[in-house]
Design a protein around this nucleic acid. Structure first.
Lengths: 160, 160
DNA sequence: AGAAATAGGACCGCCCGAGTCCTATTTTAT
DNA sequence: ATAAAATAGGACTCGGGCGGTCCTATTTCT
């Protein structure tokens, strides 16, 4: 549940790979695909989309390839995911569009919308640079949350 | 992308519904299903799982139903989602199990694992009570993140 | 001219989520 | 006692979307 698409996975792998190259150097789809055992043609589509969204700069022709369009410190994980898969949606029904039949009776749309914002925040808070250098801090919440007893804990004592 | 399953949706709707009932009163599957236009038999399975995980207390027989097993202030959204769909997984490959063939070459597993922890934190930070009373605060990050220019912004100026 | 790369449309198979069906079992109301 | 109404849960089906492939341009370097 809540899993990333394979495309998003591949996109992040590629972005990290490009971030670790010497400044402003580029790399072809095939190189990356072979390096990580990713279907080349699928990765191609992913990189094309990242280029269309302005996160990568493409260079056609022989000796062509891709390079980061921006410093890796400025590109967030959220940027990559959204460039590939479109806007993050926790719920089926989008902002205003009542595309799910239970729209009128749905009581959790607004709360879930706020939770979605939190998730996007979490994804936006992490840059490709941090991914590449493995400098992602684990915790984002101060203390209160971690301290609060989980239902799982309480339930196990109450249950059975 | 990153969407919740329908079951998780239904589970949250039901939990919120039960949280809004007078203290310790219960409600049948059918009542909830009809109220929100949810397929009753599907909702039944969801509630059964929530009961098995100790988040709900079930009462069989005529006039039976479900009620919260714990105060709504103690049950988090993460609890509900995980009770229904199992552990939140952002990546295909789990903690130690190398169930994806690219395990050895995967360079983003660890970073994504930390991101997953952040998402779980975000979900754990929100209780059913907050959902029911619509008291979820929007922002969880102080300032730094919001201020940082997004790649989208920068790209749009750089692009085309 | 040809090789190697990006650009992108069209297609396909299959897995899994969503939903249904069916059969217990338990409890309560009549 | 019997029927009704509820939970418990296994088995099954169906359809859409994701992951992947194929094919055809087009660009650019050698």
């Amino acid at each position: 549940m809540l899993r990333l698409s394979k495309k998003a996975d591949y996109g992040l792998i590629a972005m990290k790979h490009l971030a670790l190259l010497p400044k402003a150097s580029s790399c072809s789809t095939r190189e990356i695909a072979e390096h990580y055992d990713i279907p080349a043609e699928l990765l191609a589509k992913v990189l094309q989309r990242l280029a269309r969204q302005g996160l990568l700069v493409s260079h056609q022709g022989k000796r062509g390839g891709y390079r980061l369009a921006l410093p890796s410190t400025v590109i967030s994980v959220a940027d990559v995911i959204q460039a590939i898969d479109g806007p993050v949606m926790v719920t089926a029904c989008s902002d205003e569009v009542a595309d799910c039949d239970q729209y009128s009776k749905c009581s959790v749309r607004d709360p879930l919308w706020r939770i979605k914002d939190r998730i996007v925040s979490a994804l936006s808070a992490c840059t490709i640079f941090e991914m590449a250098t493995d400098t992602i801090s684990d915790a984002i919440f101060p203390a209160a949350v971690a301290k609060r007893p989980t239902a799982a804990t309480l339930a196990s004592t109450a249950d059975q």
